[in-house]
Amino acid sequence: MLGIKTRAALREEFAPHADYGFFGPGSVAWKVWSHPTSYILGFARAVTIEHLDPNLAAAVVQAGGVRYRPHTRYGRTMRYFALVAFGATEPTAKAADVLVKIHSKAIGNDPVTGSTYDANKPSSQLWIHMTAWHSILYCYEKFGPGRLSPHEEAQFWEECARAAELQTIDPATVPRTREDVIRYFEDWRPHLAASEAAQDMVHFILGLDVALPPDMPAWQKRAMSPMLYVLRHGIISPYPQYMRQMCGLRQGPLLDMLIVPPNKIFHAAMHRSINLSMLLMRMIAPAALEIAMPVLLDIPADNPITMTPREAQAKYGYELPVHAHQDLRARQHDRVFAKGEAPSDEGLIESEQHIGAMS
């Protein structure tokens, strides 16, 4: 059994980051993303409603990673988002560059729309980006400390746009106010589709036990069932009604109301105890631990500077993501659409040292 450790003792276990990344101490991104509401509630809300984009659902289902190695896929995704929020500039810029390679193989034919999909498509990347940042803030407000001040919220959305520079997104298309974010999701609503595959993936992820270590004893998973029930219905409660209907989820306003207090209590306890926070992260996303803990433990960076992603890309010699690896993307396109072959795994092996192991 793990013992309780002081913050001073825990600081000895984690190396400082080389710098403060893209946000740094005092940023609203650090304040919101470091709160425990982001680890499960916000993150799981994002990765479930993402599947209402039929292109994304097709990419996920045809790749198969979420279904056949959910714990690893969940951990790799959390590590990448932790890098964006907390990581030093060079390893995060590298991970973002490698992610373009990974996404180059996420192309194919969408059986729902009859069109093709490409995970590097800027509009698809913006959908993923906005569902993540919006869900993290929504759950922070609902189950954590509450609404940000107007000044903090304005800064949060500016930082959201800054983070978008790490993807193929045009930062000018990123909403920068609450009203613009609401309008963005309303504008996307006609593009959403609740296919059988999308519903299946949403229900699969909402089981939550799929994010637990695959070697966890069955009795431990059963013991966690009450907590998972509380968390699962907490994730659903911020879903708008039309998304619940599309996902085939039935949860009424009474349960929405009753599920809030236990979730607030749970996350307040996690926020007060760094040991509990670390235990949870080690359980569901061990690959993200070394990225998040220096920030959670207030370990000073070796070099106390921040930069924008564009500055980091220029400094470390990476192309803008939208232009990166065009040769590879063209080869993948030729394999899939011209030759009818499966895309190559180029980039996947390389990604393990940057985003975490696949096995």
Rank of each mutant, 00 (worst) to 15 (best):
F14R: 08
A285K: 01
V66Y: 05
K94A: 15
A88P: 12
G114H: 13
S195C: 11
T37E: 11
Q125L: 07
G3L: 10
F23Y: 15
A29L: 06
E158K: 07
P213R: 06
E153V: 03
G317N: 09
A132W: 08
E196D: 11
P171Y: 07
I49W: 08
G75E: 15
P343D: 11
P226C: 05
D97W: 10
Q199L: 05
K315Q: 15
I284S: 01
R176P: 00
V66P: 04
L228S: 07
Q251V: 09
C139F: 05
E152D: 10
N275T: 08
G75R: 15
R176M: 02
Q313W: 01
R178D: 07
I265P: 00
S237K: 12
E158P: 04
R69G: 14
P150Y: 04
N120W: 07
R335I: 01
K31F: 07
I305E: 14
I182P: 02
R272L: 09
P150E: 05
L83Q: 15
S149A: 03
Y39Q: 14
P122L: 00
V336Q: 08
D215W: 14
A46Q: 09
E153M: 12
W33G: 03
I169C: 01
A96F: 00
P286W: 06
G146L: 09
A163M: 13
R79G: 04
W33A: 13
I355T: 08
A314N: 08
P226L: 13
E311Y: 05
L228C: 10
M227Y: 11
A269Q: 13
S104L: 06
Q313K: 09
R310S: 09
R147G: 02
P253W: 15
I49N: 03
A172L: 08
G234W: 00
G65M: 06
E352P: 04
K5A: 13
R178W: 03
Y117C: 13
H17T: 11
R79V: 00
H333G: 13
T6D: 01
A357V: 12
K94Y: 11
F43A: 12
